[in-house]
Each structure stands twice: as C-alpha cells, then as structure tokens.
Simulated assay, not measured.
Amino acid sequence: MQNKPMSNVHAEDNAKPCGLTPKGLERQRRILDAAREVFLEQGYDNASINEIMCRAGGSLSTLYRLFGNKLGLFEAMMTQTSNRVFAAFEAVECSIKRKETPEQALKRYGNLLLERVLSPEAVGLYRLITTDCSSEREQIQSIFFAQGPKRINDKLSAYLHSQVEQGVLTIRDPELAAYQFLEMVKGNFQLRAMLGMTITEAERTQAVEQAVDIFLYGVTVR
C-alpha cells in the first residue's frame, strides 16, 4: 500500500496527547504499541499498516488522521519509546543533583545506559535501523539517532558542561567527551547483543568501572 502524504501536523506533535480524549489516548496507545511490535518483527520496509491496525483495532483512516503516514507513525513510536526510556535517565539526573561525585554519577549513568541499550526492545530497534533497506532509510535512521543516541548524549553532555562551569572537571569539548564516554561503556556489547551472544553482569560492571577510570583519570604510561 502506498503511504499517504504526511499531514501538516509534525510527527513529533503526533505523540503528544493535546486535544485527545481519554478514549482517543487509549486508541493512540494501542496503535503505537502494535506498531512497535510489527516494526520489530518485520522491519520498517516490510511492516504492514494493515497488520498494525489489525492488531490495534480500528480503521486506517484513524491511523492516517493521527500520524499522517507510515513514517509519521514510526517517528511517533520512537518518540513514545524514547520518552519512556528517558524517565529513568531523568531520575539519574535528579540523583546527580544530590551532590554525587563525578565518579559516582558516571558509574550510575553508565550502568543505566547498558541496562537500556541492551534491553531486547532497544536491541530490536537497533537491528531494525542498521538492516533496513527501504527508500526511507535515511529518514528513519535520522529519527532513531535524534530520539535515541543524541538525547542520551545531550543529557550527559549537559552534566559534563555543568561540572566544567563549576571547576570540577576540565574538558575541552563536553559534547564530544560525552560521546567518547558512552562509546567506551558500550564497547562491543551492542553488537554482541544483536548477535545473540551472552553478556554477563560482571562484564557490564567491569566495562563501566574501567570506562569511568580511563575517562576521569586516564591511563598510566610506564
């Protein structure tokens, strides 16, 4: 089925409850939940709008009215997923404000990062993004990056910048440093998770602790 043209409502606004009744919000939630299931099972290109609505219940006209088209639905699903994930990161941010040391804050952030990016849902989304061959590949990858990696990095970058302003840390580029820290923590875990390989709790703990040590204190050259 050909996608209908995107409506004038921006996709990021589609995930907002503004103007929807409780019944409308429940309908929207069912559609987004069904969309997540189908996208993860079948990939973006193969995902069927008809299958999504069959699982969610309702008419295609409702989907088009709420989300515009398949790409709009994908973006709204990513926004919903990202907002749910970020509830946990907001809690970490609050704990950071309780006078944690940089070492404590980074360990907490690193552990939460691994917990989230190695979850079955996150691994499924990452697999979807990296294997998709649809004509809209660049668009869905851009949506994924903005709603996932960039948002995670922006949170950490803001924290590092605040530490620089307070004279606690000296960092030339907090945004770049945030990406570097997060990549050290993730290492090859994301790839291993995609391949179905086992990652132990001991490996996760060691990865976070060593990343924090290297990030804050460097390595010793003998």
Rank of each mutant, 00 (worst) to 15 (best):
residue 3 N to V: 01
residue 6 M to D: 03
residue 8 N to E: 09
residue 9 V to K: 09
residue 9 V to Y: 05
residue 13 D to V: 03
residue 19 G to N: 05
residue 19 G to Y: 08
residue 20 L to G: 04
residue 20 L to S: 01
residue 24 G to Q: 15
residue 25 L to N: 05
residue 26 E to V: 08
residue 28 Q to C: 06
residue 36 R to L: 15
residue 37 E to T: 14
residue 37 E to N: 14
residue 39 F to A: 12
residue 40 L to Q: 11
residue 41 E to Y: 12
residue 42 Q to P: 03
residue 43 G to H: 09
residue 44 Y to R: 08
residue 45 D to S: 14
residue 47 A to V: 11
residue 50 N to H: 15
residue 52 I to H: 06
residue 55 R to D: 02
residue 56 A to F: 10
residue 59 S to K: 13
residue 60 L to A: 09
residue 60 L to R: 13
residue 61 S to T: 09
residue 61 S to E: 11
residue 62 T to W: 04
residue 63 L to Q: 08
residue 66 L to Q: 11
residue 70 K to W: 05
residue 72 G to S: 00
residue 75 E to K: 01
residue 77 M to E: 01
residue 78 M to C: 07
residue 82 S to D: 06
residue 85 V to E: 11
residue 87 A to C: 05
residue 90 E to P: 00
residue 91 A to P: 01
residue 95 S to A: 15
residue 102 P to D: 01
residue 105 A to I: 03
residue 107 K to Y: 03
residue 113 L to W: 04
residue 113 L to Q: 12
residue 114 L to V: 09
residue 120 P to R: 05
residue 121 E to N: 14
residue 125 L to S: 03
residue 127 R to D: 09
residue 132 D to G: 07
residue 132 D to W: 03
residue 134 S to F: 04
residue 135 S to V: 07
residue 135 S to Q: 09
residue 136 E to V: 06
residue 140 I to Y: 04
residue 145 F to N: 02
residue 146 A to F: 14
residue 147 Q to P: 00
residue 149 P to A: 11
residue 151 R to I: 00
residue 154 D to M: 02
residue 157 S to M: 01
residue 158 A to H: 06
residue 158 A to F: 08
residue 159 Y to R: 04
residue 159 Y to H: 04
residue 165 E to R: 06
residue 166 Q to P: 00
residue 167 G to I: 06
residue 171 I to N: 06
residue 171 I to A: 07
residue 173 D to K: 15
residue 182 L to N: 11
residue 183 E to Y: 08
residue 183 E to N: 13
residue 183 E to G: 05
residue 186 K to F: 03
residue 187 G to P: 07
residue 189 F to K: 13
residue 189 F to M: 15
residue 192 R to Q: 14
residue 197 M to E: 15
residue 201 E to K: 15
residue 201 E to S: 15
residue 203 E to Q: 15
residue 205 T to R: 12
residue 206 Q to D: 08
residue 206 Q to A: 10
residue 208 V to K: 12
residue 209 E to H: 13
residue 210 Q to Y: 05
residue 210 Q to S: 13
residue 211 A to D: 07
residue 213 D to S: 10
residue 214 I to G: 00
residue 215 F to D: 01
residue 215 F to Y: 08
residue 216 L to Y: 10
residue 220 T to W: 02
